[in-house]
Design a protein around this nucleic acid. Structure first.
Lengths: 128, 128
DNA sequence: CCGAATCCCAAGCGATACTG
DNA sequence: CAGTATCGCTTGGGATTCGG
């Protein structure tokens, strides 16, 4: 994924001077439709595959698999498979994942707190 | 910021028993590729269209227009057009936008702080 | 129950050209 | 400078099916 342009790489200042800071990394990891929801659900405790699926309405089996795998690769989620019949797989947040969950919770709080203000802004914007 | 703060996330449950909490709203608003970067840049001060474009490497004119428009509609960004020649349009965060920028900054900090840990986790995962 | 594999569509985004 | 309009690709992700 190159940026194609020749001059793009020209100036990329300090940690946050004019550039993107580390935010891009966070977005690449959590910007998809489900990762954050999985982290939030796991913040409540250990969950099995099926439990996650039921707890997150609308997620497909495929996306749950992909999402947990990515989160596992990034070291945010830990997977434990019990060789029972039927199979039983548990997912839990790592310490790393928990530290992130705290921040996400704040974002959720912000969203709930300011939802009315945003709604009002939209209504205002749409009516003009 | 400590990594092992398990107490923080102990009770995320609140109003979101099994459901999506307010996080979905946040994702729908900031989950795209550019919104967060624009907010971060505007957190540094007032910016003109061209300044934003130069400050955010890789963004296209089209996406900058779309993004600022959406953020404007949501009441996070304010637009001020001066009828000069050449035209001059200023963007700045609203109070609402600034309150969000603070949280985003924390996310960026988290990302920078834990980037090595994530990188290590990936290397570990890929090698097994 | 857990998950991999395949098919396929639509949204998101980039590139480019044009207007005021 | 600050947008708008159009086109085409790339990717996310839903539906379905098969395997362990």
């Amino acid at each position: 994924m190159s940026v194609t342009n020749t001059a793009v790489t020209a100036q990329v200042t300090g940690p946050c001077g004019d550039d993107d800071c580390g935010i891009r990394d966070v977005l690449d990891r959590l910007g998809d439709r489900w990762s954050v929801l999985v982290v939030v659900e796991l913040a409540k405790g250990v969950r099995r595959f099926r439990e996650l699926e039921r707890a997150i309405p609308g997620i497909s089996q495929r996306m749950l698999t992909l999402t947990t795998k990515r989160l596992g690769r990034d070291g945010l989620v830990e997977r434990t498979a019990h060789a029972t019949i039927p199979p039983q797989v548990e997912y839990r947040l790592t310490d790393l994942g928990r530290s992130l969950a705290g921040l996400i919770t704040q974002l959720a709080d912000w969203s709930r707190e300011h939802a009315p203000a945003i709604e009002a802004a939209r209504t205002r914007w749409d009516s003009t």
